[in-house]
Design a protein around this nucleic acid. Sequence first.
DNA 1: CTGATTTCCGAACGCTGTATGGAAATAGTA
DNA 2: TACTATTTCCATACAGCGTTCGGAAATCAG
Lengths: 202, 202
Amino acid sequence: MGEQTTRQRRQARTRQAILDAARELIVERGPDGISLREIARRVDYSPAGIYEYFGSVGEIIRATCEEGFALLKAEFDRVPLDLPIPERLVELGMAYIAFAQRFPQHFLLIFTRLSSNLQDSRASYDDSDTYGVLQRCVQEGIASGVFHPRPGFGLDEMCHYCWALVHGLAMLRVTHLQHVAQHFDLMHRRILEVQVSSLCHP
Amino acid sequence: MGEQTTRQRRQARTRQAILDAARELIVERGPDGISLREIARRVDYSPAGIYEYFGSVGEIIRATCEEGFALLKAEFDRVPLDLPIPERLVELGMAYIAFAQRFPQHFLLIFTRLSSNLQDSRASYDDSDTYGVLQRCVQEGIASGVFHPRPGFGLDEMCHYCWALVHGLAMLRVTHLQHVAQHFDLMHRRILEVQVSSLCHP
DNA sequence: CTGATTTCCGAACGCTGTATGGAAATAGTA
DNA sequence: TACTATTTCCATACAGCGTTCGGAAATCAG
């Protein structure tokens, strides 16, 4: 049993080393720069040796994306829970965008490569309950009477509304506007404030 | 001179055949499925022969994206100009989303591969003035007093607000929600209506 | 018909992900 | 400790990719 754990620990350490190399590679070269052979070089393995730990390069990408979701969740957790709900919703949105700006390659990997990967393996992934954070915030806003749902525009629509906007803002920032030096933070905040206020007034 | 035009016409026809093959390939296999060698096979050329017409596979992608922008512009042009401005803005957004749903591979190519392509060649691309359509519509709304700008939330912010939301809705639809059978059209419309109304009330 | 130019391709280079079969290292057991 | 079984790891090979280069073929201009 102790020996088994020794093996498992070694296995886990190697797995993590592979994921670390993958993460560095993504940061350096972007989503297209991921290469199983380059990862193998960095962890001093042969290309074939990697297959003992991951079944394909797609699995490595999936695992790296899950690490990314954990990072996003960490950004969410830094938003104070005692903030008034409208402000909290704005801050959650800003956290989403901040994540995209701080880890643009991770963000792009998750939202432009993950889904095309999954249609092959049909497997799911762990998003660290990031959507749940949004959902609970909006739900709280509705329950406390701050947000006003109407027929055909309830919790689901509100959540999708919020998610789509911050997703669009973040995505545009790291793709089409990636080379624009201007700071968008203030504009983003103003936009989010307008959106949140549109949830308040019926 | 007549002979020159003969050559130029032949050249243009071959170029178009290459782009047609590229477009079909994208539709069949998605943004990752583009292959210069497969394009060459379909137009009965050798891989090296393609380089007489395009300097790299990146150039083919750029040209295909520009074709995509023209398609998007065509969707925009189907929106009646005599519609009241708020409804017109909603319809423009729906047209954007409709384009993404009708040509998901084109949409993904444009908004997830084009920008990573361009950082290499530093070159620009023709977006068929699609952003201009949005800008003029919002501008008209402000000028006619339907939309109410405020300090720190003027034309630019409004446009970015609108673009980001529809972009997020469209992107989520064709990536993370691509396998959800449910029809999102009604939800999208409701969301856009809420957003546009938030531009009207100060 | 001749010379210049454009068009096209065969071959090669270096890169990629992945499958296979067997060697090396490690583990459990007698 | 010695033997067997399992896990770990790699050399090799295969098929694909984008791109470059040199020269052949076709087309053009004079």
